[in-house]
Nucleic acid binder design. Sequence first.
RNA 1: GUGGGUGUAGCUCAGGGGCAGAGCACUUGAUUGUGGUUCAAGUGGCCGGGGGUUCAAAUCCCCUCACCCACC
Length: 376
Amino acid sequence: MRVFKLLNQSKDTKARTGVFSTRKGKVLTPAFFPVATQGTVKGLTSRQLSEIGVQGYLANAYHLYLRPGLEVIKKMGGLGKFMGVDKPILTDSGGYQIFSLARLRKVEDKGVEFRSHLDGNKIFLTPEDVIDIQIALDSDIFVPLDECIKNPADYKKAEEATNRTIAWAKRTKDHFKKQGNLENLLFGIVQGSTYKDLRQKCLVEIDKLEVDGLCIGGLSVGESKEIRYNTLSYLTDLAKDKYLRYFMGYGKPEDIIEAVSLGVDFFDCVIPTRYARTGTAFTNQGEIVIRNSSFISDSAPIDSECSCYSCKNFSRAYIRHLINAGEMLGIQLLSYHNVYWYNSLMKKIRKAIEENNFAKFKKDFLIEYKRNNLVS
RNA sequence: GUGGGUGUAGCUCAGGGGCAGAGCACUUGAUUGUGGUUCAAGUGGCCGGGGGUUCAAAUCCCCUCACCCACC
């Protein structure tokens, strides 16, 4: 059975809708998964998340392996049960930590050595280990270990990282196959920095492995938007329709809309929750920094067009007060709103594509969204 | 009442003849496969008040006010 089924292909952009099937149910695309690195979408309960209608979660194998450890999660019945959620969980491998924790690791062909950011312990992870970790977590979608490097990168370095990512992907697939008929899905990651030949080579090699979806990695790590979208568009032109296309770790609302118009189906990003923690709210008129003094006695909700719990019950003035006072409820209410708002955005995107109206939707959305903030 | 100490940014304080300072707070940014972090920039001053010495005083001298401590 095919995992990803294309439903609508828009005529005037490369945007498309589809259904992605997992053992925990179907995911309508374009989809957005909030990030739950440590097994929690920070600040939100599983009840709130299902109320919002979140379709799934991104957790992190590296982080959960370090803490609380695999034994604990296995004993608790796997990550989904541990977290109390019933939607699919995708686990990132630790490849991004090769980039974000660059000072703490050494990469070699065999695998990567990390010094734990928690206690300094040395940990050596191979691509095979990373699969074993995800099996122990019993997540629904596995992501192979890859080498994510920052941009701009010189060609030689990018080529080395791409070759390593390809070699690791092959080992990952071999190891995955040896486990028998797992219901868990396995994605492949395309690296290659901003070099088209490397991207193409990586995509061809990953395609040979018959993975369940294509992760687009190594973007939004220092390159300009122009180069980013250029590289992205090149990839979505090359990728076969049967693959779900996942832009890892992206993006702001305007970024998501742009990427969807270039043919991306799937996103995760820390932005709705991290921005909530630092006091930025998303609205149909753009971002507002709720801690700004202009909201000190603003009785309006965060977004008057939003029907989430936070917007129906609380004023900007109250949420600003909570955030500025460092109260956790402020973070909770804003996280709830931001995740709800992102989820609504994805629904609107899918609807616009279904109605073959995405180009107009994109244009209208951006005009309205730029009203309050400067979107480049 | 006597003796001693302290008065400098909203707060806690450094500076002791030569451009008025720091941390926190506040104000504004940044943050894209997450360390509620971190980073960057900015606003803010009768240096308790008055007088004197000096080319020059937050700084030295005199007076005064406020607060704190000790002793009558």
